[in-house]
């Protein structure tokens, strides 16, 4: 503080300033007072931990991590429930965290008597993931809950920790809902899936390892759709030798919902 006043005095004594008009002298005092007040007060108000790690309060990082966990994480469940987690790890739900169905369980880990997990049996839970929605990726198992054993709880037939269907599905539509729904409103509604796709029996158990085959050439579609074909349907007919010979049929037509009338 003292040094500032000394500086001001020294500045005032300066021969240039002593000759300056009165107005300038007064303003110099005011300006110096305002600026020095700002410079003195500012450092006092800046938080101590500001600017240590960047242009922010270091304490903000501590604030950010001071939240309590609600979700304990899948590793915590294994410690006590190894039987269940083993079963889970072998089935389709192996990537599913326990807390998705049983709710956040950090409290349960702390004190298992006080904080019971939830054991949902409602038919509303599973359809959150498994209800048929046209936006869901192809191949993801989906049902229409209204027509799917509509009175029973899901867990009466499906063990959620190993959710393989209780019996091998007989209908392709059980898994391929999107395709079967498209086909059902198309001109191919009466064509059986197996007419085009030979399907190994094992596909129903290990769908990704054993895949159904697909038609390989134009002649396959030509069985019904060439002009000289001996069929009595109203199917649109083309000359296989001249009709867009550069392409296979399914490059332009979607066989499950063929556009051509």
């Amino acid at each position: 503080m003292l040094s500032i006043f000394r500086n001001i005095r020294g500045f005032m004594m300066n021969s240039w300033l002593s000759k300056a008009p009165e107005q300038i002298k007064l303003l110099v005092v005011v300006v110096i007072l305002v600026i020095s007040a700002f410079l003195i007060i500012r450092p006092l108000l800046i938080p101590d931990d500001f600017g240590e790690l960047g242009h922010f309060r270091t304490g903000a990082l501590n604030d950010a991590v001071a939240i309590e966990f609600k979700y304990a994480g899948r590793a915590s469940c294994v410690e006590c429930h190894d039987d269940m987690t083993e079963m889970l790890a072998a089935g389709y739900h192996k990537k599913l965290s326990c807390e998705v169905c049983h709710g956040p369980l950090a409290g349960h880990i702390e004190d298992s008597d006080e904080n019971e997990p939830s054991f949902p049996r409602e038919r509303t839970l599973c359809p959150v993931c498994h209800e048929y929605l046209s936006s869901r990726p192809t191949g993801f198992p989906q049902i229409v809950s209204q027509s799917h054993n509509s009175l029973k709880s899901c867990v009466t037939c499906h063990e959620p920790h190993d959710p393989a269907p209780p019996e091998v599905p007989s209908e392709c539509s059980a898994c391929h809902g999107e395709i079967s729904r498209s086909k059902a409103v198309s001109h191919h509604m009466d064509v059986e899936c197996e007419f085009c796709h030979t399907t190994p029996e094992l596909h129903k158990i290990s769908p990704r390892q054993y895949r159904p085959d697909k038609p390989q050439n134009r002649e396959f579609c030509g069985q019904c759709h060439t002009k000289n074909a001996s069929n009595d349907t109203d199917a649109p007919l083309i000359n296989l030798a001249t009709h867009e010979t550069r392409y296979d049929c399914w490059q332009c037509h979607y066989p499950h919902l063929p556009e051509a009338r």
Partner: peptide
């Protein structure tokens, strides 16, 4: 979103990642 900063500094994944059933 903080990427669940309180979780990642303790070696856990963010809650949304933990809860995603399909990875």
């Amino acid at each position: 979103c903080t990427f669940c900063y309180h979780r990642i500094v303790r070696g856990e994944e963010p809650a949304c990642v933990e809860a995603c059933p399909t990875e």
